[in-house]
Design a binder for these strands. Sequence first.
DNA 1: TCCCGTATAGTCGGTCCCGACTATTAGGGG
DNA 2: CCCCTAATAGTCGGGACCGACTATACGGGA
Lengths: 211, 211
Amino acid sequence: MAKRKISNTLALAVLGLLREQPMHPYEMATTLRERHKDGSFKVNSGSLYDTVGALARHGWIEPVETARDGRRPERTVYATTESGRHEFVRWIDELLRTPVAEYPKFMAAVSYLGALGPDRAAEALAERAGHLAQRIEETNAVLADTVGSGRVPRLFMIEAECALHSWEAELAWTRRTIAEIRDGSLSWPEVQRTEQGWTWSGPTDSKGSTP
Amino acid sequence: MAKRKISNTLALAVLGLLREQPMHPYEMATTLRERHKDGSFKVNSGSLYDTVGALARHGWIEPVETARDGRRPERTVYATTESGRHEFVRWIDELLRTPVAEYPKFMAAVSYLGALGPDRAAEALAERAGHLAQRIEETNAVLADTVGSGRVPRLFMIEAECALHSWEAELAWTRRTIAEIRDGSLSWPEVQRTEQGWTWSGPTDSKGSTP
DNA sequence: TCCCGTATAGTCGGTCCCGACTATTAGGGG
DNA sequence: CCCCTAATAGTCGGGACCGACTATACGGGA
């Protein structure tokens, strides 16, 4: 599978918005924020203008008007093209079908959990758990205020449900791991340098070395 | 909280490796792959040399030797510094404590699930579910072969357990959503453009419009 | 009426990151 | 013994991404 010409998912959001209505970049940003889509797309003005430019170069969108209100900066309004609308659907299809490797910061830190020692690790994870619980609550509130009140169809906020499930899973894992650290069921070997290679020792693990 | 000087987590991996032993960049890459850490860190030669250079500029690591084997390219061997070792621990602590917004590609696609229509969406999700199941199986096999056989302490592969849980959660959500699409409990409104704004209609949702 | 904070709209320079590429050598099958 | 592949070690140019900055207009309190 050849690499996508544009891989920034912000471009997907742009195509999605322009499918509804011609718009200028600044309006795209505010619309995405209004609809709470800024949890799924990193909306950054710099990236946005870059992305819109790239989409235009590829012929997936095109400028349809350059208006000027008084002496404010010029606004360039864009619309999708036929090929842009097709690309939009193809891209979504591909993103859904084939999982790609992601490298969340949390996973990197968990890789070196050992370096903190059991007490500090448990404490740090506990703080994270608190933040996660709060984030989950906030998202639930947003869902209640939109889908829950019938103002927005559920399908239009489905990604919030997806994110919620993912955070709940992370929270569950975090809490379980805290418990395992505290009750000692996750043994904490100390690493030592020797001339042979690496040696570790711990409450339940036997000594060994990596070749 | 001021922004970190280096945010690429590959730098964390480098600090972690050099804490054990002085090394040259190429050896870091192969070591990370051997230890199956390339699921948590994106190991790319270009990024690696950039990252090592940045770490050296900040004084967190330093070159200790530049050896040359025959007429092969020069190898620069690096070691951590005192401040590098402190930074390592501080960084892990911070990454664990405070969750940051991540923008997985899947979330972006789910945002526009509607654009595929129910049948194609369900089919695409089903294909994803298959890939996820396979990935889970592969990771389980790796865990069985390392931790399961007692060759590596569980703590050293803990991030694989974490990733496994996260994928299992995603798989569960995916399967549940497929079922909801197929049995019609996730209603699929059609969006139409009107002069007022946006109108949708669907089996269970009442008509409405976004202001 | 004057000022100040906020909303509107976008530009710009620099850093980060990637992957394709180069160059050398060890190893092994024919 | 020779060629071909894989492994070793790293370079480089270009594109993606970010966030700080500019500039104008509007609204409301002092």
